[in-house]
Design a protein around this nucleic acid. Structure first.
Lengths: 248, 248
DNA sequence: CGCAGAATTGATACATCTCAAGCTGGGTGG
DNA sequence: CCACCCAGCTTGAGATGTATCAATTCTGCG
């Protein structure tokens, strides 16, 4: 609990690992300079809550490193994760003063925050931030709708396979080495978090992971380290169209 | 099948029923004039398909009157509705050339279409359209996430109650008369469409509607006409927080 | 070493799906 | 004007997938 707001050597946007993907990616040098003036970093430890749904939220932010989750909770405790925030993803909504969801760090997390008021002004004055934010929001909307199909219509096994495929694909896109011998990655989520994301119980998640392992679709090393010997085989289990289907 | 593209007396944006809510709501007179130049109307009969997922889509559009649905379909025929398009809602994505979902008219439908290329140019040249589109997209994202909670965690009864509450609330906002004696409206969806929206089968929808009727939460006149004698009672059945929770 | 959180596995309950049989109401053609 | 028809809907009985409750078993760590 000790220290949660931190000491990041406030670095230059030019060196930022998410410079080319985040909400600032379209900015010119002068626009970037304005952003630099209103930005500040915050760090969170794995497991920490960034903000609670309903709390006042006077900033917006980009995830720089680490992973965070957006979850909704019902009065009786049922929980549904509604978003997984990866590096470059954006949190918060211009024009809204309170958080709509619980935001939690699932790994150690660094966020690049902007005070909301100046950020909103900057959106008015320069179009590139707003343009990029629209693009990112449309992408998120598509992702949310894909998730609606998963939640509404897929079986537990298909849900697990889909989640693994998404994480595997993302990981593969980060480390461009494609070892023919299969894709390897670490799960960034606990079984319970997977359950909250997939609309299942943690027991069902555990059973289906075991089943995929038993059937040779995946291999496990420890609880978190996953090996996918044949990605196409995994894709068959997701229930999705064979072709990734992402043209433009 | 006969005639599907139609003869709407191309009217003035000033008279448009969605003038104050649609993507054009923030436009000044000069911007509106530009939109007028590239707009055209299309009409569809109830049940007609507006566009199939994957088809080339060289326009974007606003729903003027009527209701349309966005649905995703899996190879084996499982279907999930991912959006319900009401008057003023926007369809299509600037910067994408094919439709991502099946769009279907569930009632007779009139859409105000803009050819995509000019619309995109207009978005660059004037900020008001892009601003409003961002706002609308953020609203849709919130709605999608609320639906994720419904799909992932709510019971069949809660799902039905939630859908009825949403339709009831929308209808109440259109006809501002609040008859103390209860809210009355017509379902714009068949049981099967409700099922596709809620991630259920049509039989389960039918059973749960009957159950809500048996328990006095709603009354039915025919299959489609619904009477809600006590809206708070209906809200209790949705599983949501008692307070509507829509501050800003 | 032993504890605590995380995960697995088992037995059973239950909500929803599936398959199947009727019902209902509005439109149509004889 | 009636009889029929058919899509939309309801209801039933049984199957099934996932949740629930309850032990264990892992695993990393103090």
């Amino acid at each position: 609990m000790a220290h949660h707001d931190l000491h990041i050597t406030s670095h230059d946007c030019g060196d930022c690992p998410i410079r080319h993907r985040a909400v600032c990616s379209r900015c010119e040098a002068d626009e970037l300079a304005k952003l630099e003036q209103i930005k500040y970093y915050r760090s969170f430890q794995a497991g920490q809550t960034v903000i609670w749904s309903g709390d006042r939220m006077d900033f917006v932010a980009s995830v720089v490193t680490g992973i965070a989750t957006l979850t909704q909770t019902m009065e009786d405790g049922r929980r549904q994760m509604v978003g997984l925030l990866l590096p470059s993803d954006f949190v918060g909504r211009p024009g809204r003063s309170t958080a709509a969801y619980d935001v939690t760090a699932t790994t150690d997390l660094v966020m690049c925050c902007f005070r909301k008021k100046p950020f909103e002004e900057l959106m008015q004055s320069t179009p590139h931030v707003a343009q990029r934010l629209l693009e990112m929001t449309l992408d998120e909307l598509d992702a949310a709708r894909e998730w609606m199909l998963l939640l509404g219509r897929k079986t537990a096994r298909e849900k697990i396979a889909s989640l693994l495929a998404i994480i595997a694909r993302r990981d593969a896109s980060l480390k461009p080495k494609t070892p023919k011998g299969g894709i390897v990655f670490d799960l960034p989520l606990t079984r319970e978090e997977m359950a909250d994301y997939l609309g299942l119980t943690l027991e069902t998640v555990s059973r289906q992971v075991s089943a995929l392992k038993r059937d040779g679709v995946i291999e496990l090393e420890g609880k978190r380290h996953i090996i996918v010997p044949d990605f196409d085989r995994l894709m068959e289990e997701t229930g999705d169209d064979s072709d990734g289907g992402y043209l433009n």
